[in-house]
Amino acid sequence: MAFLEWLQSLPFSVWVSESDTVWGYPAILTLHTIGFGVLVGANTVVNLRLLGVGRDVPLSSLRPLFRPMWVGLTINAMTGATLFAAAATEKGTQTVFYVKLTLIAFALAVLLRIRRIVLNPDARPPGAGRGLAAASLVLWIGAITAGRLMAYLH
């Protein structure tokens, strides 16, 4: 708790939470939403393809989608840490916040396994990755739900 209070009292954290300009909390939250859309959106496209949607799109042609996913992840790690610092004592004591982080960690672990299939589709039987794709969708929906609930469960 002392650490959370220290984090929240840093001048930058105070600026993020109390600045009256749009460039503080609202802009950082918007960047967090863009990063989320890029990471989860691109991951979802790959998941749908693995589940049989858009079969005419060769799996290997989706390889370039992984780079924007890592960019989205990096943006969200940074903006997420900033949003956390600005309200550390509140978010750091919310169970649902740790549920969100856990679901994201699992979703990223699944994403790495999906990436191996997309990078080397010939090494797998057709239909490989369906279970991973379904798990990925469930984990991201869970993470989104937990993230939304952070605004409501105090």
Binding site: V40, A42, T44, T145
Partner: peptide, 18 residues
Amino acid sequence: CETLHFIGLALLLGIAGL
């Protein structure tokens, strides 16, 4: 509805972006 709105956002942005 907010949660569903965010799920739709990711799906729409992913496919429209592609």
